[in-house]
Amino acid sequence: MKKYIVLDIYSYVSKNIIDLDQLEDIFHKGINDTKYVVNGYHVERYEQGCELKEKEKVVSNLENKGRSVAFIKECEKVIAVVGYKER
């Protein structure tokens, strides 16, 4: 199983709801497990060419930096964008 390093996290919710450490933990547990869901949050990898409904600029910036991109979602709403690379 591949391991990853989180380099960037953009959170769109208050820290009182979920903080960056918690988001990073969700990322590590969910990036290799499509069935992983905790408190309604799950992880989705961003695939190039996929239509982006939101957060286009953030995703574009991360890609320009050479990061891989993933979303942390609550239902279908993006609550965080993660920039990462393989360890």
Binding site: I9, Y10, S11, V13, S14
Partner: peptide
């Protein structure tokens, strides 16, 4: 010069 995209809490690596 980092775009934050409307986020509330963000962490960015400048150089790893």
């Amino acid at each position: 010069d980092e775009a934050l995209g409307g986020s509330m809490n963000t962490s960015c690596t400048l150089k790893d």
